[in-house]
Design a protein around this nucleic acid. Sequence first.
DNA 1: AAAACATATGAATATCTGTTCATATATTAT
DNA 2: ATAATATATGAACAGATATTCATATGTTTT
Lengths: 122, 122
Amino acid sequence: MAENKHEQLEQCEYMCVHKEVVDKLVDNMPPDEILYDLAELFKVFGDSTRIKILYALFESELCVCDIAQLLGLTQTAVSHQLRVLKTNKLVRFRKEGKNVFYSLSDEHVRGIINLGMEHVEE
Amino acid sequence: MAENKHEQLEQCEYMCVHKEVVDKLVDNMPPDEILYDLAELFKVFGDSTRIKILYALFESELCVCDIAQLLGLTQTAVSHQLRVLKTNKLVRFRKEGKNVFYSLSDEHVRGIINLGMEHVEE
DNA sequence: AAAACATATGAATATCTGTTCATATATTAT
DNA sequence: ATAATATATGAACAGATATTCATATGTTTT
């Protein structure tokens, strides 16, 4: 093993792209916290069970048992996932007696899914 | 413990929402495979390192080492994540000597991230 | 050819995530 | 009140995933 290679950068010694461009990039980068939240949002869309639930809610509000039956999932699994969707403000709910009806919380949800769909269907 | 409760459905006995609506839903649901692919796509966006990389590529193509330096990540981590992005056709690359320059592969990427950002910034 | 550099990759590890099981809560009907 | 039903939740387990470390590949320079 060679001597301490601490001095040796893990990256290339100089920027490949012109410095002005890179500096501009750094300025335009949103704060880490925002980027983290953004990743968290997409993480919610990144599960096929949740995607199915959201898709099911495209046409109409549904109660938990409807969703479970429709998608062939257990009530528990649906309930857990609805909690995730609720926490991330992708769905809202309305209680009516024993039932809880869920619906899409805003049009962003539909928009994001539709855009993703365009990419997938290419 | 009661007798075998196998007969007892885990879901409610009848659809809460009118049958026609639910039937229409079933018809409009894209096939499972597509929904799975869609979730896979969003999963790629669902990691802050990858989001940062994509954001960095908004303005200009960059080589691996530029990205690593810019975002304070190791070369290895960036390389692994670029592979994921490449596999999912979110970035493309161009080789130039020792360097490999990556760039966004199409405008869907920007669109999806921008829509997500709108939701996050609310 | 050898050294230096940029990038890629495989294996190992630690963390995160989704489902299941058991059970709790809440509402309605008897 | 008690039973039945719809939903929610906590704990445990299994599978997925991101990073790190070590090393390989490929290109340029000397």
